[in-house]
């Protein structure tokens, strides 16, 4: 499947792009993180500690075990600091 991956805040700076299109058969967010981490040294550094990341699957906050079947948009970012 083809996934649109978005990065926000410090994660965007680490990866070096705000979005990229990725072909993947990853079953879960966790599996996708392993694939993304292998794309470049910058990706590897950005995804070194998955537990420190937050994720949205098709614009819904999701955990690392969220399934990716049928998903189109993934976003990765640090913990949110609104308010």
């Amino acid at each position: 499947m083809t996934l649109e991956i978005l990065y926000f805040a410090s994660l965007r700076e680490r990866v070096g792009v705000s979005r990229e299109t990725v072909a993947s058969d990853a079953a879960t967010v966790r599996d996708l993180i392993a694939e993304l981490g292998a794309r470049s040294d910058a990706h590897a550094a950005a995804f070194a500690d998955p537990a420190a990341l937050r994720c949205a699957v098709d614009q819904e906050l999701a955990g690392l075990d969220a399934p990716l079947a049928g998903v189109r948009e993934l976003a990765f970012f640090p913990p949110m600091t609104g308010g």
């Binding site: 949110m80 600091t81 609104g82």
Partner: peptide, 20 residues
């Protein structure tokens, strides 16, 4: 809003540096 709304704050400091 503090921890479940997708906003991220970055400080723009007087010395010109920035910090998330």
């Amino acid at each position: 809003l503090k921890s479940r709304a997708p906003f991220w704050k970055q400080e723009i400091r007087r010395d010109g540096s920035t910090a998330w």
